[in-house]
């Protein structure tokens, strides 16, 4: 895993759940919540959980403002680019508006920066249901963020109705995307309670713990 991971994708793809999972599982130093779009289900809503796991949550410049949807970005979001001892994950808001926020770091990023820009895909989201739509989304995100996408993340799911075949449908479409774009599938996520045969899927196969959505709802 590179020192910096940026998580992007269409909104509702599961970016925040994945960013939180990566931060906790890989004991990262910081999670930077750059979600300026969503009013609910943001990583700032799991502040206490992240703190318990030793992950520093860098969020709005109005800390803990879960009741606000003002697009205030903390200047602390630059820290991982300056302090090169920090391992961090950036959680962007969905689509173009969210990806654009990475441009503020353009002057701090060069070819040597150890940074991965991943796109999370759920093929059951209507806006990313086909190879064409996904390729077009990748181009949009690259343009908006001014970064090259370095990996695809398969998070194809139907929430509680997910089974191995659900994830398999994502695998098939993402293989086509991968062939067309030369971008590898780096992770495949599956719900904790769904068993999958690792060899059926590309990239690192990992269970996804649901920290944000109340599972009983």
């Amino acid at each position: 895993m590179k020192r910096l991971t940026v998580i992007s994708g269409h909104y509702g793809a599961g970016k925040t759940e994945i960013a939180v999972n990566l931060a906790i599982d890989f004991k990262l130093d910081a999670l930077i919540d750059l979600d300026v779009v969503n009013p609910y289900f943001r990583s700032r809503s799991v502040h206490d959980l992240l703190t318990r796991h030793g992950v520093d949550l860098i969020e709005s410049s109005l800390p803990r403002s879960s009741g606000s949807d003002l697009p205030y970005i903390s200047a602390g979001s630059r820290r991982p680019f300056i302090d090169t001892s920090l391992r961090a994950v950036y959680d962007l808001a969905g689509t173009k508006a969210g990806a654009k926020l990475m441009r503020q770091f353009s002057s701090l990023i060069d070819a040597e920066t150890p940074l991965d820009f991943f796109v999370v895909i759920n093929v059951f989201r209507p806006e990313t249901s086909t190879t064409e739509k996904i390729v077009s989304l990748i181009q949009t995100l690259e343009g908006a963020a001014q970064l090259r996408v370095s990996g695809l993340v398969n998070n194809s799911n139907l929430m509680r109705e997910t089974d191995a075949s659900t994830i398999q449908q994502g695998e098939s479409i993402l293989r086509e995307v991968s062939a067309e774009t030369d971008i590898p599938i780096v992770y495949t996520f599956h719900p904790e309670n769904v068993d999958v045969k690792e060899s059926d899927f590309s990239g690192t196969v990992r269970p996804l713990r649901r920290y944000l959505a109340k599972t009983w709802l």
Partner: peptide, 13 residues
């Protein structure tokens, strides 16, 4: 077939 949607989008559709 089934699609996964956010409430506001689903209601709009």
């Amino acid at each position: 077939s089934k699609v996964l949607m956010k409430g506001n989008e689903a209601m709009a559709l």
